[in-house]
Design a protein around this nucleic acid. Structure first.
Length: 1061
RNA sequence: GCCGAGGUGGUGGAAUUGGUAGACACGGAGGACUUAAAAUCCUUUGCCUUCGGGCGUGCGGGUUCAAUUCCCGCCCUCGGCACCA
């Protein structure tokens, strides 16, 4: 066999290709479709590692395949040359970052050439070239003019070790992505792209892209769109420095007045109520007959729609079917269903408020108002009786005098003593029913005191749990805290807490999830759903940047609130009956908090039984606390976040969570809002080695863009770029002088540089027209190539570069600069090459493979092919580098080469057939980037050719396919062994011939009861009947079918025979 | 916890619409060549076996003549998000 000296062969052909300029890519070739294959460009770190080979050499196989398949393929390369690592390395070595970077680029270009990659170097770009960043700056200015980038004071992620600001995407778990030191929050003036304005588009347009679902999903989650409601909670300020104002609600019943007054006396407001009987509604006598309860129970059950929950009694002796029942609750539920208000409680509250405000406007005038409430009763015969009641309240305050109001009250209970149904309100009922009224009055009071417009806006995805709100939490950073400083009674305590929080780094705040907080004494909020007054706290588990920075806390339905509420002893009110799922398919109950009683119920049980026991334990408790409006007792304060149907929620009870979210949001004047996790993209960097921000400031400090004729706005070179926390550009005399000369005295330059992700957000356009100095890329050229057909890159850029560049194109599109809305049609994340030990390659582990060394030993062709063979390129997995595997691939290349020595006149028929089958398989596999199986089928073919012999025709077909993987050896065989003229890489990809693949006979597996027992060789055109007859006769089969009936004989044409006995 | 992708020999992986599970390669075992080693070549290699066969694609069920593939329930690994209301 010929000796294979990879070094020599590769050098020879690399020079040949260069000399003949075979990789030059024209913008347009007659009769060929353009195909833009892009691999993320290189960072000029100074050395090419295995990852680079995987990133560039393997996609090169695809680019070559496409080119041979008749496409005009653009597969360019460039350098992402600005940025921190280059600068840090330069500082460490006492060099200029520019010299260091450009030297690295020069060296890396040579290394890249050693791959045998088909880059068109005439299109190379370097983002640090002024010819390049001129256009980065130009685009920046266009965005500035359209308000897509603005200057804002914002909390920035500051890395004290790198002395610069980091983007959110560069902070990993509270630490700097680059140096792993802790990131602190610092208030800074920053130029920020309004990427959030494009958040919806960035999510919605993902659906139009042919990307792997996991990449799309990662972007969706990063953007983090949540749809929910924004609801206002009015704030009640205690007004410690104001005179108390009294509102008196009068009644004509002395004893009741005293009792209710005591109950409701709060915050300088005195409210008293009248009971229905005092308003001319007498108790209705209902003849006691045995069927009444049954009747009512049936109605109540229908109403509640619990099928797996019996309605249990807990305080009466009424027994039906051996089950004790509670007639009070039963009847109340039934009435709730039939009860027909003309107005909702919220509307009533609103009316009272409007009414009262009108009075204020009239300065104490007296207005009469009333409305009716309808009553309903279930009679023994099932009939429903409805009556009306007219109620009144008199409001009085010291400023506005006495006002008469009418409002409804309702209640009904069954008295065992009298055996009659009585209309009477319990104290709790009065409280509950009056809450909207009280709430309205308190808002009013607050208004009168001058604090009326204060409200807390909360964001919630669970507006259905509003009736379960028992407190409100603000983020410590919430502006209202500072605003209400004077009104907060425990300011010292609050201030101490704020300091404590400020001291905590974001990292600590993320890691330490124990909840802390302090109440804002003297401040309360009103739950707009039920008018209840709830305490306001600040706590650092509420994040300032998400939603509105304020949360309505629902301990019974939110795990975090539950933890906080247990710690600080705040009440739990259960208002959503969790849904157990579809009938007959109930799911495990998930709860947290003091849920031991639920877990205990399920202890020792399994499967559905356990699930049922736990659900029932919860149902039992909810039944017990129904009377208390769902307030959970100590020891059983648990939370459950499941959705379901509302309970203990006034007029909204029985609604589903989904219905209630809409209904409550609308009724309470809230709005449906979307909120995003994505933050605006702050790009100011206090470092030297980056694209200068093309802005200058007038003597008043107002920013102005540098006019286009002065672009590129060059990076000054007279700068000591050692970082000290101030921007190095501030130290440039040249830049200062340049600014004053061009704009006038007192004008100053912007001294921050841009994040490097800005440079890489549009680089793919520049490859199309790299030397154009009129425009960043000509429209015609963009039309020929964009959008990119296939983009190869690393998974680490999913939520950074990939998102930024999508935003960039959308922004350019929005202001009419480009036509496309998306840059990349198809995206492929590559996997990771691990060290031979299966761990990530790292110097400390000593498992780093240096590709230069391997190439020196076995050649670039082997390394390329090995990387393609190591695992499926279309699935991003982690593949360990196996030095033995490399040798195996090298052996394969040698065998292909060796075949050239033993060529026959013609190939045997079997080899011809296999060759065409292999062409089909390889073509299909490469097209979907399953390069590993493409190679293995070529290996199979080569094995057959070695054993059976091969002629020139088939050998040439093999070598053409092979040359995409091993371009140097492919060329060597093509020109030197086969004596062809011109490069193999300009030849056509082989086409398979279906006719050549036809086999005259084929071998079928024969199964008996699904197990393979024999093989049967038949002619390709055998009919089903013939095959079946042959099978029955098959000698090897007799022992399996002897003495048994053949029940069925299945023949799948050309595939398999199955005998069922 | 939520979302996504997966789980196949000693290893990387293959099986394109349900149709012979383990292609191809590495590693192992045996042999040839050699003074020897490397390299190369040949044979063999899922597990168990009483040599008839049986069992095998994370686990348990189901559908089917036939399941790595489809359905139901669980377990595990990797990736993304996560005190996100």
């Amino acid at each position: 066999m010929k000796h294979y000296d990879a070094q020599e062969v590769e050098k020879k052909w690399q020079e040949y290709w260069k000399k003949h300029n075979i990789y030059r890519t024209e913008d347009k070739v007659e009769g060929k479709e353009n195909f833009y294959a892009l691999s993320e460009f290189a960072y000029p770190s100074g050395n090419l590692h295995v990852g680079h080979w995987y990133a560039f050499a393997v996609p090169d196989i695809y680019a070559r395949f496409k080119r041979m398949s008749g496409y005009n393929v653009l597969y360019p390369m460039g350098f992402d040359a600005f940025g921190l690592p280059a600068e840090n390395a330069a500082i460490k070595r006492g060099l200029d970052p520019k010299d260091w970077t450009y030297k690295n680029i020069e060296y890396m270009r040579k290394q890249l050439d050693s791959m045998g990659a088909s880059f068109d170097w005439e299109r190379m770009i370097i983002t640090a070239d002024p010819e390049y960043y001129k256009w980065t700056q130009w685009m920046f200015i266009q965005f500035y003019k359209h308000g897509i980038i603005t200057r804002v004071k914002t909390k920035a992620n500051w890395c004290d070790s790198c002395k610069t600001v980091l983007a959110n995407e560069q902070v990993i778990g509270g630490k700097c992505e680059r140096c792993d030191s802790e990131v602190v929050q610092k208030d800074m003036m920053q130029w920020a792209f309004k990427i959030t304005d494009f958040a919806d588009e960035l999510i919605d347009d993902l659906d139009t892209l042919d990307w792997d679902e996991s990449i799309k999903q990662a972007q969706r989650e990063w953007i983090g769109r949540k749809e929910g409601s924004e609801i206002s909670f009015p704030v009640v300020v205690n007004g410690k420095d104001k005179e108390p104002v009294k509102i008196l609600i009068a009644t004509n019943n002395k004893s009741k007045k005293a009792r209710v007054q005591k109950l409701l006396e709060k915050n300088n407001i005195v409210v008293d109520l009248v009971s229905p009987s005092e308003l001319g509604i007498e108790n209705i006598d209902v003849a006691e007959e045995g069927t009444l309860e049954e009747n009512a129970i049936a109605k109540a059950q229908a109403y509640r729609e619990y099928t797996n929950l019996p309605i249990l009694a807990n305080d009466t002796s009424l027994v039906i079917d051996g089950v004790e029942l509670d007639p009070v609750r039963v009847k109340r539920n039934a009435l709730g269903h039939l009860d027909e208000h003309d107005l909702s409680q919220e509307e009533i509250a609103q009316k009272i408020l409007d009414f009262y405000i009108d009075i204020i406007k009239e300065k104490g005038g007296k207005v009469d108002g009333y409305w009716y409430e309808k009553w309903a009763l279930v009679m023994p015969d099932g009939a429903t009786h409805i009556s009306e009641a007219k109620r009144n309240i008199v409001l009085t305050d010291e400023i506005h005098g006495e006002v008469d109001l009418y409002f409804p009250l309702r209640s009904l209970y069954y008295s065992q003593d009298t055996g009659k149904y009585h209309h009477e309100a319990t104290e709790e009922d009065y409280l509950l029913e009056m809450q909207p009224v009280v709430s309205a009055l308190k808002q009013l009071l607050n208004f009168v005191r001058g604090g009326g417009e204060t409200e807390i806006k909360v964001f919630t995805t669970r507006a259905d749990t509003l009736f379960g709100v028992t407190y409100v939490v603000l983020a410590p950073e919430h502006p209202l805290v500072e605003k209400l400083k004077d009104r907060i009674e425990n300011w010292e305590e609050v201030e101490a807490y704020l300091k404590e929080v400020e001291k905590k780094s974001d990292l600590e705040r993320q890691q330490d999830k124990t909840k802390t907080g302090v109440p804002l004494k003297g401040i309360t909020a009103i739950n707009p759903a039920n008018g209840e007054e709830v305490p306001v706290w600040i706590a650092d588990y509420v994040l300032p940047h998400f939603g509105t920075g304020a949360v309505m806390a629902v301990p019974a339905h939110d795990e975090r609130d539950a933890e906080f509420a247990i710690k600080y002893d705040l009440p739990f009110r259960f208002v959503v009956l969790p849904s157990a799922g579809e009938v007959g398919n109930s799911r495990p109950l998930v709860t947290s908090g003091e849920n031991e009683f639920i877990l205990k119920a399920g202890e020792g049980k399994k499967g559905q039984e356990k699930i049922n026991a736990e659900w029932n334990a919860m149902y039992d408790l909810l039944n017990e606390v129904h009377e208390q409006g769902g307030v959970l007792p100590k020891g059983k304060r648990f939370s459950c976040a499941f959705e379901g149907k509302l309970i203990n929620s006034g007029a909204y009870s029985r609604m589903t969570s989904q219905e209630a979210r809409d209904a409550l949001t609308e009724a309470l004047g809230g709005k449906k809002v979307k909120t995003y996790r994505l933050r605006d993209w702050a790009i100011s960097r206090q470092r030297y080695w980056g694209t200068p921000i093309p802005m200058v400031y007038d003597p008043e400090g107002n920013p102005h863009p540098v006019p286009e004729e002065h672009l590129p706005w060059t990076l000054p070179e007279d700068v000591d770029h050692t970082p000290d926390g101030t921007a190095p550009l501030a130290r440039s005399e040249e830049l200062k002088k340049r600014t004053e000369e061009l704009f006038g005295e007192g004008w100053t330059p912007e001294i921050d540089t841009m994040d490097t992700f800005v440079d890489s957000s549009w680089y793919f356009y520049r490859y199309l027209d790299p030397h154009n100095d009129e425009v960043f890329a000509g429209l015609e050229k963009r039309r020929l190539w964009m959008p990119i057909d296939l983009y190869f890159g690393g998974a680490e850029h999913t939520t950074m570069h990939l998102l930024y560049s999508r935003f960039w194109v959308k922004a350019l599109h929005k202001i009419g600069i480009v036509e496309e809305r998306e840059p990349y049609k198809q995206r492929l994340n590559r996997g990771l090459i691990l060290g031979p030990d299966g761990a990530k390659m790292s110097k400390s582990k000593g498992n780093v493979i240096n590709p230069d060394e391997v190439v020196a030993q076995v050649g670039a062709d082997t390394v390329r092919m090995y990387l393609a063979f190591i695992g499926p390129f279309n699935e991003p997995g982690n593949y360990p580098w196996d030095p033995n595997g490399v040798v195996g691939v090298r052996r394969f290349i040698e065998r292909v080469y060796g075949l050239g020595d033993v060529l026959k006149e013609t190939s045997p028929e079997a080899v011809v057939k296999l060759t065409h089958k292999t062409i089909k398989k390889v073509t299909e596999d490469v097209e979907r980037l399953k390069l590993n199986t493409a190679i293995s089928s070529m290996m199979t073919l080569v094995n057959a050719m070695e054993k059976q012999g091969v002629g020139k025709t088939e050998y040439e077909l093999l070598v053409k396919m092979f040359s995409a993987f091993a371009p140097h050896m492919g060329e060597e065989i093509w020109q030197e062994v086969l004596g062809n003229e011109g490069s193999i890489h300009l030849s056509d990809w082989p086409k398979y011939d279906e006719a050549m693949m036809q086999e005259s006979e084929l071998t079928l597996p024969v199964q008996v009861n699904g197990k393979v027992r024999a093989q049967l060789t038949i002619s390709a055109d055998a009919t089903e009947e013939e095959v079946k007859n042959l099978v029955r006769e098959l000698p090897e089969l007799q022992k399996w079918i002897e003495g048994k009936d053949i029940k069925k004989l299945i023949y799948v044409k050309g595939k398999i025979v199955n005998v069922v006995v």
